[in-house]
């Protein structure tokens, strides 16, 4: 899979929505390779910035299916490099170049 390299201070992440139909909110695309700039000149990008970015740039419809308040909706699992984000500080998890972030909805379908 082709990976576009980011310019300076851009963090490149791969997003995926593998199960649960969350991709329906983003034109049915399951895997997104993206470059995200940290906000307001900050040096680091964290999950909070990322969710804001995803909501503004990837989610095409019904954002309330993805987010509640400033975080993901309860019932959506978030993995950063195959690790539950509860273990890395959730919204405060800092992201590095080439990190892989996965969102899995457990709300529908078994």
């Amino acid at each position: 899979m082709g990976m576009a390299y980011g310019h300076n201070h851009a963090w490149e992440s791969v997003f995926s929505f593998p199960i649960g139909g969350l991709e329906l909110l983003c034109d049915s695309v399951k895997i997104h390779n993206v470059n995200v700039e940290p906000q307001d000149g900050a040096k680091k990008l964290d999950m909070k910035d990322l969710l804001t970015w995803v909501r503004g740039n990837l989610i095409k419809e019904r954002p309330e299916m993805f987010m509640k308040g400033d975080t993901v909706r309860p019932g959506i699992l978030v993995l950063v490099n195959d690790c539950d984000w509860e273990l890395s500080g959730q919204l405060t998890t800092t992201l590095e170049d080439k990190d892989v972030v996965v969102f899995i909805s457990t709300l529908h379908g078994g």
Binding site: D82, C83, D84, E86, S88, G89, T94, E96, K98
Partner: peptide
């Protein structure tokens, strides 16, 4: 190489590998 995130700790069962989840049932990492 990909820097390990500061937070995740070792698995509380094997004490070797990096914990990947927190069990809701026991809160074990």
């Amino acid at each position: 190489a990909k820097p390990k995130k500061a937070m995740p700790r070792q698995c509380c069962v094997c004490n070797q590998r990096r914990a990947a989840l927190k069990r809701p049932k026991t809160l074990d990492q």
